[in-house]
Computed example of a mutant assay.
Amino acid sequence: MNQVIETLLQHRSIRKYEDRPLTDEQIRVIVESAQAASTSSYIQAYSIIGVKDREMKKKLAELAGNQAYVETNGHFFVFCADLYRHEVLAEMEGQDIYASIESTEKFMVAVIDAALAAQNAAVAAESMGLGICYIGGLRNNLEEVSELLNVPKLVIPLFGMSVGYPMQEGSIKPRLPFESVYHEEAYNKDEKQLKEQLSQYNEVISNYYIERTDGKRSDTWTGQMARMLSKPVRMYMKEFVEKQGMNRR
């Protein structure tokens, strides 16, 4: 096993950081690593907004559900789906591209490009001894987040990433069984087999929570997911995305 794989397999979310900012060089390396990620048809349909200002971090933390680690970290990155620059380049080239950039396909391309870039950034940061935590809570209040970050139409803040020097290690959450995730040749639709795998996984997760909380919590994964998914959230998203000029066709 090489060092890259070891870094990947040791990932855990870090939610407490030293009061120590990242250097400009560290930020550049993380962003350049993000840019090295694969991108569909070379479209590079994303942007990254870095936030150093403590007051702005504080506002973002409130908008994300009062998550302290959005405010207190070494640096905060916001990954955005971005087709604004493509609107600009179309004007430069005298082309009408709205049928394309308003499509669901290009919306998906932008989201996927941003996610790939973010994961490269995460691995780069962790390889430097830093910790990271993805922040999907920014999507709780995208109107306000977009206004705060001054994003134009055709740009959507998708999620944040807090990065910094860990104050605590955190624990690695067990993932789904390999067999539940990896399918060979075709999708395995054997429901009985899947339920058996999920039952076994529930035991692993329950034991993880019992050990982590000294017996105060013994959740199962299926129970946790079923409760969460039974309460729809952020149902304004389709309207917001269309208002930003994406996913209209």
Rank of each mutant, 00 (worst) to 15 (best):
R85H: 13
D82T: 02
A36N: 12
R28I: 07
L116Q: 08
Q44M: 11
A122V: 15
G131T: 04
Y69N: 04
E105K: 12
S127E: 09
D113Q: 08
L83K: 01
I48G: 00
Y98P: 08
V70A: 03
Y84A: 15
A117D: 03
E126I: 04
Y98L: 15
Q95P: 11
I101V: 11
M56E: 12
A114Y: 00
A45V: 07
H75E: 14
E91P: 01
Y46V: 01
S103T: 03
Y42V: 13
F79A: 09
A34M: 10
K106T: 13
T39K: 00
H75N: 11
A68C: 09
G129S: 05
R28V: 10
S41Q: 13
Y98A: 10
K59M: 12
A68F: 14
A118Q: 07
L83H: 06
T72Q: 15
D53A: 00
A64Q: 07
G131K: 04
F107S: 03
D96K: 14
V51G: 06
D82G: 02
A99I: 13
A36Y: 10
Q67S: 05
A37N: 06
E32H: 03
E91A: 12
I101T: 10
E62T: 11
L116N: 10
V88A: 11
T104Q: 15
S33M: 07
N120I: 08
E32Q: 11
I30D: 07
Q35S: 04
D96W: 09
I112Y: 13
K57P: 10
G50A: 05
G129T: 03
D82P: 07
A115H: 03
S127F: 01
K58G: 01
S38D: 08
G129M: 07
K52E: 15
L60Q: 03
I48R: 04
A36S: 15
F76P: 07
E55Q: 13
S40Q: 06
A37T: 06
I97F: 07
A121Y: 05
A114P: 02
M128H: 09
I30G: 06
E105M: 12
A81H: 02
I97N: 14
E102H: 15
L83G: 02
I112W: 08
A99M: 13
Y69I: 06
E105W: 12
A81P: 10
I49P: 01
V31S: 02
V70N: 00
E87G: 10
L89V: 13
L89C: 10
C80A: 01
A110N: 04
A121L: 09
A118T: 07
Y98V: 12
I30N: 09
L60C: 05
